[in-house]
């Protein structure tokens, strides 16, 4: 499955605005989209509850995964949201 691994650079981590934008963008895809922190289990990237509960902080490594048509483009977009300072 196509994936992106990156380090979260936002001062607030994946909370508040970055988290909401990330989930809204993931939700546009009909395919399954997951988010994992470090070596942890992946969670549903379309769930704001799951993403906030994952508690991704600045400097954390994350892996975003999805499949299907447009997977690479979606991953690029999600990675730019999650990786933005």
């Amino acid at each position: 499955m196509p994936q992106r691994r990156l380090i979260v650079e936002a001062e607030v981590g994946l909370h508040a605005r970055p988290a909401a934008t990330f989930v809204q963008t993931a939700t546009r895809s009909p395919a399954e989209v997951t988010l994992a922190k470090g070596d942890g289990a992946p969670v549903n990237a379309k769930s704001i509850l799951s993403v906030l509960a994952l508690d991704v902080k600045k400097g954390d490594a994350i892996t975003i995964s999805t499949d299907g048509d447009g997977a690479e483009e979606l991953l690029d977009e999600l990675a730019s949201i999650a990786g933005a300072p």
Partner: peptide
């Protein structure tokens, strides 16, 4: 006073 909440982006 934060659109991420006032525009219900979080929910």
């Amino acid at each position: 006073p934060d659109p991420v909440f006032s525009q219900a982006m979080v929910g």
